[in-house]
Design a protein around this nucleic acid. Sequence first.
DNA 1: ACCTGAACACCGTTCAAGT
DNA 2: ACCTGAACACCGTTCAAGT
Lengths: 235, 235
Amino acid sequence: MPRGYAGLVDTPRDAAPSGGSVFYRPQRRSKTADGLSRERIVEACVALLDREGAAALTMRKVAAELDVHATSLYWHVERREDLVDLAVDAIFAGAAVAPAPHGPWTEAVRSAATAMYTALAAHPWAASFAGSRPLVGPNALELSRRILRGLESTGADVRQRAVAATAISNLVLGAAVTAASARALGLDRDTALTREVVAAATGAGVPSLPVLEWQPRFEDALAVLLEGVAARLGR
Amino acid sequence: MPRGYAGLVDTPRDAAPSGGSVFYRPQRRSKTADGLSRERIVEACVALLDREGAAALTMRKVAAELDVHATSLYWHVERREDLVDLAVDAIFAGAAVAPAPHGPWTEAVRSAATAMYTALAAHPWAASFAGSRPLVGPNALELSRRILRGLESTGADVRQRAVAATAISNLVLGAAVTAASARALGLDRDTALTREVVAAATGAGVPSLPVLEWQPRFEDALAVLLEGVAARLGR
DNA sequence: ACCTGAACACCGTTCAAGT
DNA sequence: ACCTGAACACCGTTCAAGT
């Protein structure tokens, strides 16, 4: 079950007190129904990012979105990076509560991995932050747990499951990062650069750009990886 | 063979003239032996990034590194993003010229993919830029071609090879991005957050942090994926 | 408790001016 | 051709002050 943004455990004292992740620091909770709140701020961030992209996430623009001064945000978060972490994890909220599908373990794993990819594909700015901020929010962790739980019914030992889970999350992230940065550079349009990149990366020409339909390509790649997992686990 | 930074082809006119990638724009070449040059600037960027990390890449700091004014850099590059693109591709220079190993196709593929990962692991700032700038420099493309060439001897058709190559590059990138952002957040130290993240992602505790030795974990994951590729290609 | 407003030390980039 | 220097429109963040 995904948890809220108040911290993963009750404000541990042994964690880095001021550095580290928002998810591991105590939250100042707002009392008033009007006024700002961490929830409203995160909502505004996501809206802004969806509309204008990763570069638009500035304290001043988020504040403007809420008709407030930039410095007011510092009552609710410690720094800009907190906004990044909170906004990124917010996009996984829906996927983290979706019920696990019935069927073989491959379906459970595929479902969790695809849900993660779909969320990242729907909000490309999130993938573009992944290089500087790891996906360790409660919702992202819940998705990791779902992948791992799917692998439990394979009968493989802990170490094999860990390797498989790592491979799967990394494939998801790599695919999302590739799609996000490619789109940002305009590689989804048919330019000479696009043709060169596609040729180098896939050996194919650009047949009306279908190779750049990222989602089906990700699903193909995931299927290959799952075949490797099945082979490795001996079933 | 990797090419220089002068552009992938001879200054094409159909590419986006001013936007897009440095690698696809004509380069102003410096004549004087002293003074600035794109090469010296890129060298300074890499040194600065290795020393101080991704956030240190500002026009002013790069300029200071070269005892020059920030505005002088604009004679040699069009914008800051060009520095990012050039510095990132520079770290692949060594890997792109290494001779391909003898042996089965898996060795050729594994060698190219591992070389790419190793370069990214040695310069974590490069992975942290991958979310906003795709790896489309000449050296990165050469590594992609090496992966693809390795897959040619499998006898699989073009489409199967493209899917496999995509999966492999995405795994490399995802693993590198994960390692880079985790390190930036301090997940390589044993904190409560580290323990929670490792448990969610691998199901294991933190046995003296060996799970965070990223390189062997990447190699395990790659092996699983290659097993899937082999299974899919029927050999 | 929560927000404002001024202030500080930065940014990337443009452009006229020098040589 | 190449670099300087001033200038502009931004940044994140701190902190005293208001209410």
